[in-house]
Design a protein around this nucleic acid. Structure first.
Lengths: 205, 205
DNA sequence: GTCTATAAACGGATAGAC
DNA sequence: GTCTATCCGTTTATAGAC
């Protein structure tokens, strides 16, 4: 199914199929470890078993590769966090779903989801503007959710914007300290994490 | 602080005086904006009004420059946050001082304090080990403080390590969203921030 | 599709004049 | 102390053979 899907995508949106997807995924992993600027095309070529020139058959250039990776990460967040969350009417329950969904993307995906947090400065102005707009829509959802909680009297006596930033800080910082081979499992972390994050902003929780 | 002390330090530890300090400060600001790898020696030279060759009179090399900047940032945190905090016996009051002191360094200093959060990967193994050790001692102070709060029954039912990481996440993330020319002043931010951060980990606060 | 070869620019760093 | 000139490695990207 993935194969046929990619053939459709080739015709539809100019992608080059699953080999290209493989390059994106490997590149995301390397850029996540070494940083975008410190990652050379040769690093990526070696990791996928092609020459430097060879991978240019699949990509437009280094910066565009980064943009594709970030777009993919945003697709994933939209699909797995934002869209499900928008279907939930109760703001407290919606916030819970957002926090857990977002944190689990970082714990279980890594790569692309981390790159989008760290490498905005490497994008061209047009690409940066596009990614920023998508991030902004997500941020607004969270801030509005916190705003609804304030209306219900469930928020602490704080600025909803500051509360939203702190929530993102806790969640996104996970990518800096979580190690898949460490003592703490994703499930253990999520249990404590949700308690801490919800109490940070909610009166009772 | 480094500015006033620089004459003393020149005699004491081999630094080159206030012009070197100026280079460090300017370099920290540029690296903070563009990232270490994307910052060229020419960027720094232009900003201080020297040629690329000229600044090598004051620095050992690019990586060492980064190490000096990070060492300076750690000196600042040690002097203004860690040392004062260690003198406080009550863990809840000590945690308050750490959170406020650390957050204010980010809000009011920027540059060097931000670089140390983002560019560890660019250091040589020996330098990275040295900075990591200093960061680790600071982290241990925070975790032990949280441990004392747990003993006193003031901590929520969570792992002190996860609590410490989340605290650092909220604090360090400030560098990602705070803008000196924005609507929120450091004092406004600190008021809400302390309430959110303390309630994140403490039972009553 | 994938390669070898190479272009063209830029990087950090140094030599040596002044 | 600061400059000009330059070395030399590395970078992204392309041309063109197979």
């Amino acid at each position: 199914m993935a194969i046929q899907e990619s053939k459709v995508k080739t015709a539809v949106d100019g992608r080059k199929g699953e080999r290209a997807d493989h390059i994106y995924r490997v590149a995301a992993e390397i850029m996540c470890q070494k940083g975008y600027e410190a990652t050379s095309m040769k690093d990526i070529a070696d990791a996928v078993g092609l020459t430097k020139a060879g991978i240019y058959h699949y990509i437009v250039g280094k910066e565009d590769l980064l943009f594709q990776i970030m777009s993919f990460a945003m697709d994933m967040v939209d699909e797995n966090v934002v869209t499900p969350a928008r279907k939930i009417a109760d703001p407290e329950q919606r916030l819970r779903v957002i926090i857990e969904g977002h944190a689990r993307r970082i714990l279980e995906v890594g790569g692309a989801v981390t790159v989008i947090l760290e490498e905005m400065a490497a994008l061209t102005p047009a690409h940066r503007k596009a990614i920023r707009a998508r991030k902004r829509r997500y941020f607004d959802l969270v801030r509005e959710t916190i705003g609804e909680l304030q209306t219900q009297g469930k928020l602490r006596d704080v600025d909803p914007t500051v509360a939203a930033f702190n929530l993102f800080g806790m969640i996104n910082w996970i990518s800096r300290w979580y190690r898949p081979d460490g003592k703490l499992t994703p499930d253990q972390i999520m249990r404590d994490f949700l308690q801490i994050a919800l109490n940070a902003v909610l009166r009772n929780a």
